[in-house]
Design a protein around this nucleic acid. Structure first.
Lengths: 106, 106
DNA sequence: ACACAGTACCTTGCGTTGCAAGGTACCTGT
DNA sequence: ACAGGTACCTTGCAACGCAAGGTACTGTGT
């Protein structure tokens, strides 16, 4: 998987997963790992940014299998931003495909 | 258009356009501008990288409308890289859509 | 009791990339 | 002469992904 494609799209992926269920960081990494290469060093700083931008809130929950988990939950602003990003992503895909796959996107 | 989506995908766009015809830098900027926001300060350094990586060669050509134009032409390696990137882009799109649009990509 | 693997959190420093801002120089029309 | 379009380029900044490293808890095997 091309590293550069990933830039900036991870935020959309994280918001999408959180729109379906609250997750803790380590869980998010593993969810995304099913579809693309990703490392913890990428996710934790991204989650910090999302919280700083008020797109998510967090709460702690005990676990039987290790240290407490920090769950992330979308705020209203987070949900709105997610919807907007989905729209932008669809438009972006269409634009790129017009440039790169002109026959197929006719 | 989300700035972050763009990162790294511009190389694919430039190679795609060059795969159809040789272009000079200023022309590339205007071609891409039809589909997304882009600035010269992005394209020229990118073209320098492509040349350094032996994906393109360049030649100068006089113009009646201004200074000489520096045309960029794909090398064999550039064509191969372009094909690989197209494939990766298709796979990448599919992966992201599975995460972000799970109903639509069933 | 101790080592180890798995879980779960986090930070630092680096390299890459996109861009705003600025510069140079050529040609055409007024 | 000079303004505007064409065409090239560079510098410095900010954002992002990641490798590498660290901390600490739990359960399992020996």
């Amino acid at each position: 998987m091309n590293i550069q494609f990933k830039k900036g799209i991870l935020e959309l992926c994280v918001l999408s997963i959180l729109s379906r269920k609250n997750c803790y960081g380590y869980e998010l990494v593993n969810e995304i790992l099913e579809f693309m290469e990703i490392s913890e060093g990428t996710i934790y700083p991204l989650l910090r940014r999302l919280k700083m931008d008020n797109l998510v809130t967090t709460y702690l929950q005990e676990s039987n299998e290790g240290p407490p988990r920090k769950y992330y939950q979308l705020t209203e602003l987070g949900k709105e931003t997610h919807s907007e990003l989905i729209l932008e992503w669809k438009l972006f895909q269409a634009s790129i495909n017009k440039i790169c796959l002109p026959e197929e996107s006719k």
